[in-house]
Design a protein around this nucleic acid. Sequence first.
RNA 1: GCGGAUGUGGUGAAAUGGUAGACACGCAAGGUUUAGGACCUUGUGAUGAGAGUCGUGUGGGUUCAAGUCCCACCAUCCGCACCA
Length: 841
Amino acid sequence: MSNIIYNFRAVEHKWIESFNNYSLSNEEIIANPSKKYYVLEMLPYPSGKLHMGHIRNYTIGDVVARIKRMQGYNVIHPMGWDAFGMPAENAAIQSGIHPETSTNKNIEDMKKQLQRLGYMYDWKREVSTCSKEYYFEEQKLFLEFYKKGLVYRKQSYVNWDPVDNTVLANEQVINGRGWRSGAIVERKLLNQWSMNITSYAERLLEGLNDLRGNWPDNVIKMQENWIGKSEGALINFEIVENNILKNIHSIQVYSTRPDTIFGMSFLAISIDHEISKQLSNNNNKVQKFIEQCKKSGTTEAVLEKSEKLGYFTGLYIKHPIITEKKIPIYIANFVLIDYGTGAVFGCPAHDERDYEFATKYNLPITSVIQSDNNTLPYTGDGILVNSDFLNGKTIQEAKSCIISKLEELGIGKKQTTCRLRDWLISRQRYWGCPIPIVHCKQCGEVPANLPVELPSDIDFKDLIGNPLDKHPTWKYTKCPKCRCDALRDTDTLDTFFESSWYFLRYLDNQCKDPINKEVTNISLPVDTYIGGVEHAVLHLLYSRFFMLVLHDLGYSKHSMPFKKLLTQGMVCHKLYKNSDNQYVFPDDVEKLEDGTLVDNNGKTVTEYPSEKMSKSKKNIVKPQEIMDEYGVDALRLFILSDTPPEKDLDWNTAALEGSWRFLNRIWKVFNQVLEHIKDEKNKHSNNTLYKTTNVYLQKIEENYNSISLNKAIALSRELFNHIEDNINTASKSSLKFAFETFIKVFYPITPFICAEIWEILGNKKCIGDEKWPKFDKDLIRDENVTIAIQVNGKLRKTMELPKDASKEVAEKKAIELLNVLNKDKIQKIIVIQNKVVNIVM
RNA sequence: GCGGAUGUGGUGAAAUGGUAGACACGCAAGGUUUAGGACCUUGUGAUGAGAGUCGUGUGGGUUCAAGUCCCACCAUCCGCACCA
């Protein structure tokens, strides 16, 4: 019997096709609205190669999909491709291969890899965002947004690479330099398309409340911080008469601390502020100062180290309350033009940044909040001092008091501001959805006639700048309104635009409108969404925003896209470097007898702690090689076994082998079980295994429902151990029930081996079509329990009692068992039914 | 700086305030065979001959009882950051 070995290759080969043929029609969804269950995993960028991170993500989703299916739901489980984007375009510039060609090839390759894993995807719903079927529909959405004023074009500052002559996305700026050219990135004011997400800030913030409990707290918090709502005051400061500024008589300032207005000692404006611009026009020194500030860059890394710089303009404002007091105006490098009003008032005693600035430029520092010790700056709570009518008030009181006063004077008001900025959606890139707008000299911006197709005849070799703009003919067109010569917009959409609504397109990828309302109304929200935490803000915020907009435009009755969110952890691996400080593949590391590590050239290797698997650091394990060697089920089992889905997972080849061995053990025990249940002579009547199975079934189901897959697996293995231990004593029926139950609950984790076993057991239906086993509540209830006996809270002994035994019985038995001699010493006995007896002495 | 998390054996990890370390990996001893990617049995937090004692980052607290609740601190990781 022991020579029966589980042949994973044959079994995978046998079942793969049926696994890949899963499909659910929209008719079925519509016929049974209450039964729908939408499981979604974040769609991959088609790099061509599946990595362990993908596999972890999709395996978790697959387990959920399979369980829900067995639990009787109509499971919507689609997959697609986030196929536009820069990598394919950059590759094209290097290789000359057209992005469309390489992308479609990569999709084909990756799809094969996904299918090998047997994921239960409904491939009929597949969507590729670079296909015409997708981006033509997206253009319709864009124009609807445009007509509603949600999309607009305006001047904004962007990251500009002066060597490559192109705009870079934030993620392409590394330490202030362009990732390809290495040039220092500049800030440049360009005409760019934006989407009005800030007008939805309040609703996006409110929407987070409905997600609490279902989304990870850190993601909710990150979105909250990103939106960054703050309450304060908008104040208008009158500028002291001068003959330098034209048509400007006041400066508007936003402050969250209007209560500190009596401690104000300077006012600082951004280098991009209108006043700065006017001043620089007729003053060389101002011009030079601004130049100097611009050079230092705008990335956080640079800003953090850079010194506060200020330039005194020679101008003053009047203090709004102490009217005789004049406050100097500085141009300062630390004031951002795109937050608040681009101008701040400085109260050095109660703000670290203002304090640093005031110290440097010898500005007065007046404390207006009383603190326990006298160290400044003091930013804590306190009582107002040196502040006229605010004296004695708390900060909160002072805030509302000063705001009323400012309102009374007609120079200020209460104001909430958000950190969130409008979403810049245009890119000077080729491989994206063309923005369907025509620019006409007569009519201005005009919606283009749809669809606007990407031209395919682009020569990528040595291409610099925007390919659509450089194209010889593409942009020349006629104005749809007046038929005059006009130019197409040559920008394409940010790829986050595509990923903000792909999960709706899955619901009807053939629809002649962007969205099939009927199916969408039934199918949303996505019940379980699984993906990496790196999208906590961007994609997950944009999608929530899109859903609100689409709801407002009547596309869907839902305004929330994803009900439950699971952010799975990264897949990590130890790092190896040799004596030449080069990274070494883990596979090439060998351990010598004396314990030293060497690479395949014999060089000494040092081991470093685990980090996220990354090609450049070579700490990767290739899924394909693992599947070839151990099979899909072993890989799935390992990846789900030991670590909760939301935590980082450390790759461990030994543990993977353990998973592989466990599958062989299942196979071996299966063959033994088969003998026993076939055996007519099996006369055992021991049914405890039946009871045990019910107990485990309940616990396993609980853990599956909360996607605690590691625990569900641990419990399943316990059940399996019980089966193995009782194989020779259990009755035929209880053994059969126990083993079949185990196979059913383990099927979502390792579908191939379980499908095969299920079939050999004589079941006609494929295991995936079977019903999830039900546990017998009565059986679970009627049991003995082990009760702890403690003295002063410390464990002394345990005892078996019937479940729900009375206090008195438990007390008596505990005292008996402990053999307490001096019963007078007992002060108190605490009995917690079915759990513990604690004797206090 | 702000915000969020996390700290439990050699390792990954379990524990509705009620038997800490389930389930695995690794390791050790023994067994076994058609010598395999084996398999089986036993052991495996520390300490002690032993009954026992100690033990969940550190220090306090609440409680009959704390890994779990409260307070303070330390360490690590992640996110945001000149945000007015």
